[in-house]
Design a protein around this nucleic acid. Structure first.
Lengths: 166, 166
DNA sequence: TAATACGTTCAGAAAGGATTGAAATATGAT
DNA sequence: ATCATATTTCAATCCTTTCTGAACGTATTA
């Protein structure tokens, strides 16, 4: 059985999932795995969280793609087991980075195109506003980069990204 | 007619809307209003973006609730007109703050409850991980606050927040 | 007063996402 | 190879969100 606090955490994490752009099931599974000292298997996940095996299977796969959980093997057992990525700071930002690349960067690009090519009058309110907005984006960009520290995009990170392109 | 760059910006902004937790229509309307030197009316919004008046009406209302656009009046005209909030940096963070309060803070609270009351063993991996996670959340919290500068929650901001509570 | 213009609301339609469950596939043991 | 078990896939279904459009309310004008 699961404690009050464990359930609360799992459900809250589930709701918060949207912040990272992951759905409820995925986020709940992620929370559940984080809360387990021992590696957990698909059967347990599906049973404890009351979701289908199919859903559990796909969600685990995607969580693995995001790099926030890992598959491990236990000798003498042929089931797959899962554990959470231990580096929490990195874990949180892995998702944020990907989302930034996918959604924020194109918007910043569109904004720069607009400023460069749309022939807005330099003195106009729209120009000023868009220029300010571009500065805001750049500022946000810098904050993001700073928050990520000096961690550079690794090969893995790029692969991950490509895997998620539409 | 609308330029290539304008359309691109509108659609990109629409896609990025999910980052702020606002839907495509709302985000597109927001972009459209930002791109207009002159105040725009509902009719124009619905026509140019090809959405129903009903949708436009509701979206404009919500955008106004978020505080990212404002309603203005033009004397001699009885239609309602809309303009974008001119302070872009503030505009972007208005939404981010509300979302943080709504989704991030409860998760941080659940995490703290878990650490305080779930009776996790101090030495265990789960405890360490959850403790690290709490530190990460606090760090993120600090970054957020820093990004917002020394701007304090104004009365208006609190009203806004309350308006959005479930 | 009637006629027109404008804005809002909301029930139902449409679209989009998430979930299931059964079939297909894979793996390991005997 | 066969059996038993574990996992993945995906079409169908369910659920949620979004959107439409007609109906209604209100204000303005004639």
């Amino acid at each position: 059985m699961m404690s009050e606090e464990h359930s609360l955490f799992i459900e809250t994490w589930g709701s918060m999932g949207v912040l990272w752009g992951i759905n409820r099931s995925m986020a709940r599974i992620h929370a559940f795995i984080m809360l387990n000292e021992k590696p957990v298997d698909l059967e347990t996940v599906a049973g404890e969280l009351d979701i289908s095996r199919g859903n559990a299977s796909m969600s685990l796969k995607e969580l693995r793609n995001w790099g926030v959980i890992h598959r491990v093997h236990i000798s003498g057992d042929r089931r797959d087991f899962y554990v959470a990525e231990p580096d929490t700071w990195r874990m949180l930002f892995k998702i944020a980075i990907v989302r930034k690349e996918r959604e924020f960067n194109p918007a910043m690009q569109a904004l720069r195109d607009l400023l460069a090519n749309a022939g807005l009058e330099k003195g106009s309110g729209v120009y000023t506003r868009m220029n300010d907005l571009e500065k805001s984006f750049s500022k946000f960009d810098r904050i993001m980069k700073k928050a990520l520290g000096n961690e550079r995009k690794s090969r893995m990170m790029l692969d991950l990204l490509n895997g998620f392109r539409d």
